[in-house]
């Protein structure tokens, strides 16, 4: 099964490895050539805002075809009539490929964090901001895993690769937007009052906050900003990891159940 899994999915493994090498090289070259001032950050930062959608590619190319393509090409009848039970077939594939994408996501997170560390002096290089929160720490590994299992479960249920890909894209975007909204409230945010014109530099660590929302207008008793302080970063990382991990387990269960179902 180990050989079969690698043989059937080596294209995804190779493409993802190549992508990680390309991203790593770009980050490294950018950091290495921009030591004089911090201008290099501005060069790559606009491109970095696109990377949070990488899990969509994982769901579409790793997840959706996993079972759906076997149904579509009729090879499910081949794969599931061998001595290896279909329970084992799906369990091994989900476990091996799930481990691979999680490792890929974690490696990606380490690379982005190293790049951010290089620009420690720039306020925008904030790992707790929404854009970078999902690119650093343990969260990218879990996002990749979640996307993979979402695609796999949808493919196992729908039995059509293209349909599974389309639904995976839609579902992932919805979950991403939902978690971006929800993220500020994993723990009650802290109100930072504004006395007179707000000056971000007044507060220690202000440029490493997760900004939630402003509290302004006549109804606000104390005008200010709702934020999550910088020292909550890891607590938030593990909270989001737990949410995605639990959802991933449920999706893995759904994928296994769909494969086991013998109508």
């Amino acid at each position: 099964m180990l050989w079969l899994t690698f043989r059937q999915h080596r294209a995804q493994v190779a493409a993802t490895a190549a992508l990680l090498v390309a991203i790593g090289t770009a980050l490294l070259v950018n950091a290495a050539t921009a030591t004089v001032d911090d201008a290099g950050f501005g060069v790559l930062a606009p491109l970095m805002t696109w990377l949070p959608i990488l899990p969509v590619a994982v769901g579409v190319f790793w997840g959706a075809p996993l079972v759906a393509a076997e149904h579509e090409r009729g090879t499910a009848l081949l794969a599931w009539t061998q001595s290896v039970s279909r329970d084992r077939w799906v369990a091994v594939k989900l476990a091996l490929l799930g481990t691979a994408v999680t490792a890929g996501g974690l490696l990606f997170g380490v690379m982005v964090q190293a790049w951010l560390d290089h620009y420690a002096g720039i306020p925008e290089a904030n790992r707790f901001a929404h854009g970078y929160f999902v690119l650093t720490g343990v969260v990218p590994g879990l996002w990749w895993l979640f996307a993979f299992l979402l695609g796999a479960a949808l493919g196992a249920v729908l039995r059509r690769t293209v349909a599974a890909m389309a639904v995976t894209v839609g579902a992932l975007l919805v979950v991403m937007l939902a978690l971006t909204r929800l993220r500020g409230y994993y723990v009650d945010p802290v109100l930072v009052p504004m006395d007179g014109p707000f000056d971000g530099q007044v507060f220690a660590g202000a440029d490493r906050w997760l900004f939630v929302k402003p509290v302004l207008g006549p109804s606000a008793a104390v005008p200010g900003m709702l934020v999550q302080p910088a020292d909550r970063y890891w607590r938030f990382q593990w909270t989001e990891a737990a949410i995605l991990g639990t959802a991933s387990l449920a999706l893995a269960g759904a994928a296994v159940a769909a494969v086991r179902r013998r109508a």
């Binding site: 043989r7 059937q8 090409r73 009729g74 090879t75 499910a76 009848l77 081949l78 009539t81 001595s83």
Partner: peptide, 16 residues
């Protein structure tokens, strides 16, 4: 005992 099955479409992995 052990059973082997060949379906009508005789599926094989085309890329193998």
């Amino acid at each position: 005992g052990a059973v082997a099955f060949l379906s009508q479409e005789k599926p094989l992995y085309q890329g193998f």
